[in-house]
Every structure is written in C-alpha cells, then in structure tokens.
C-alpha cells in the first residue's frame, strides 16, 4: 500500500486541517512578533501590566516573574504580578506561553528552523517535567531568603560581594531570556558587538560567562527538543501551570468523533498525550494553548471552549 504524502505532518487529503494549521501558525507567529515588538519598544510604561520579559534597554514591560522577585526582595507585597499571573491563568490557561512570551517565540522559531523533535522517551519526559516546579520553588525560596537579608539590612553587603544584579534579581541575572533580550541587545546598542569583539571579550567575568553558557546550552537543547526550556526548566511556566490546572478556557476531546489517528499527539510541541486525555479535558497544566492539535484534527474532535464537559 502506498503511503499518503504529508504536509505539516498531516495527510495531504485532509485539506481543511492543513489550511487551518497554516492559518493558525501564521496568526500565532504574527501575534508573537507583535508582542515581541511591544516588549522591546519602549511604551513609557503606558501599559504597565507585568507580563513580558525584561529586556532593557528597549522594553518597558518587566515580566511578572522579574517583578515578583524584585518586589519580594524589596519587601513590597507583590500583589500586581501575583494578581495578574493568577487572574490570567485562571481564565485562559497558559495562553501567555503559547502566544505572548518572547522566549517561547524564540523556541518556536528554532523549531521551525531546525525541525527539533517533539518527542522524547515518555518515561523520561514525565520525570523531567517536574524539574521546572523544583526550580520555581527553589527560586521563590531564594527570593524569600534575600528578602530576609533585606529586612536585616544585609542585602547591600550581598550586592557588594556578588553585584547588584544577583542581589536584586537573582533569577533574572542568570535566565537565558534576560541574556538574549537584555544583555546581548544592550551590548549591541553600545556598539561593542559587532564592532569590537576584543572589548566584548574583555567584558567577560565569571557571572557573564555563566550567563552566556546557560543561553547557549538552552538554545542548543531547544534545537534538539521542541520548547525544551518551557517543558522542563522555566519557573514562570511552572507558576503559570499551577494556576492553570482548572482554567476556565480548556481544550476538550470528543471521544465520539475521535478516530484515534494520533496526529494531535504528534504535533503537540510539549508532548501532551491528547489522545488519552482523561475525562476529555487536555492537561491544562502543561498545555501552552497553542491550539495546533485543534487545528490539525481532521474530525473536529478537539474543541477550545469555556464550557465544562
């Protein structure tokens, strides 16, 4: 029996699904680009919702996590970042991860360019995905520890030993998104790169070296496994996931319509077992609400809806 040709991983006879997937990808790409521009063009804080990655000198939007850590450490109740995280995730699930986050966008672009794998061994995947929660808890404990140092006026001595970055924003000091959108762009804006490679290298110190190393390793991992950072490492993703467990918006599988073709499982960038979703609802903790599975489903068995099933 001859095998049917596939387009975007979908059998070529399923024209409607292919069309929908193309349209979805184009719209998602456009929205991600728009948010990347918003995040990186100064809006002079007209819209200070803390949702997007900190990327000085162009951004005016600190990410919720950046704000959360700074406010905790500076002993200001972090009501705004915490409120916006809880509110948006309770309503729409991790739509931030699928459509807005600039670092998520970078990973999607890497996926399109390198055809990184959507799948790793299931047993390994189900263990690795807990790492991000451990990192999130560990980061929050560090913020609280730093806040304690601040309360006993010891934060300045930490800052003078390890730098103000480590004292005020311990997570951002090492996160690859801040290196990519912050540090590197800043170096370009100063004309150090690409004009003066020697002054670029002379700016190296241990902390900067670790930052670049983390960024390179993460980008390499993302070129092997789709959305590697989001699946296994990102503490922002872990915090989003915690409040998305019962999000109002959800993706449901209609068992009656599903013909078990499995295309949804194959296309999912974060390796969710859509075909075997319990009670018909897709795991909204790990799902980044990209809706690729919904578009690719040729039997229309998957639906995005506020209605509980």
């Amino acid at each position: 029996m001859s095998k049917e040709k596939k387009i975007l991983g979908i059998e070529s006879s399923h024209k409607r699904a292919i069309r929908k997937l193309y349209t979805l990808r184009a719209s998602r790409f456009a929205i991600q680009v728009i948010f990347l521009i918003i995040a990186n063009e100064s809006l002079n804080l007209l819209l200070p919702l803390p949702v997007i990655g900190l990327s000085y000198p162009w951004t005016s939007f600190p990410s919720a996590l950046d704000m959360l850590q700074a406010m905790i450490i500076l002993l200001i109740p972090p009501l705004l970042p915490l409120g916006s995280i809880i509110f948006f995730n309770a309503l729409f699930g991790r739509i931030f991860c699928g459509w807005i986050c600039p670092f998520g966008f970078v990973q999607d672009v890497i996926h399109y360019l390198t055809s990184s794998k959507n799948f790793i061994k299931s047993s390994l995947h189900s263990r690795l995905k807990y790492i991000k929660y451990i990192i999130a808890v560990f980061s929050i404990l560090i913020f609280i520890g730093w806040a304690y140092l601040d309360s006993i006026n010891q934060l300045n001595s930490l800052a003078s030993t390890y730098g103000r970055g480590v004292a005020l924003m311990p997570y951002t000091s090492f996160s690859p998104d801040a290196t990519l959108f912050g540090t590197l762009l800043f170096i370009f804006s100063l004309g150090i790169l690409p004009n003066s490679i020697s002054s670029f290298f002379s700016s190296f110190n241990a902390a900067i070296f670790i930052r670049y190393l983390i960024l390179i390793l993460v980008l390499l991992a993302c070129s092997r496994v789709t959305r590697f950072w989001c699946r296994y490492v990102c503490p922002m993703g872990a915090i989003n996931a915690t409040f998305s467990t019962r999000s109002a918006l959800g993706i449901y599988r209609d068992v009656g319509k599903c013909d078990d073709c499995g295309i949804c499982n194959k296309i999912c960038p974060v390796q969710i077992d859509v075909v075997n979703a319990k009670l018909g609802r897709i795991d909204s903790k790990e799902c980044i609400m990209c809706f690729e599975c919904v578009a690719a489903c040729h039997t229309r068995a998957l639906n995005v809806t506020f209605k509980r099933r």
Binding site: L54, A70, G165, V166
Partner: peptide
C-alpha cells in the same frame, strides 16, 4: 510604583557587562 522599580532594576541588568 512599577516605573520606579524598573529604573532600579535596569541598573543591575546592565552591570558588569560594560568593558
């Protein structure tokens, strides 16, 4: 308060990267 905080935070992110 956010603009003030951002100003405070901009400094650390750029610190240590100037030659």
């Amino acid at each position: 308060l956010i603009p003030e905080l951002v100003k405070k935070l901009i400094e650390p992110i750029t610190q240590g990267i100037l030659p």
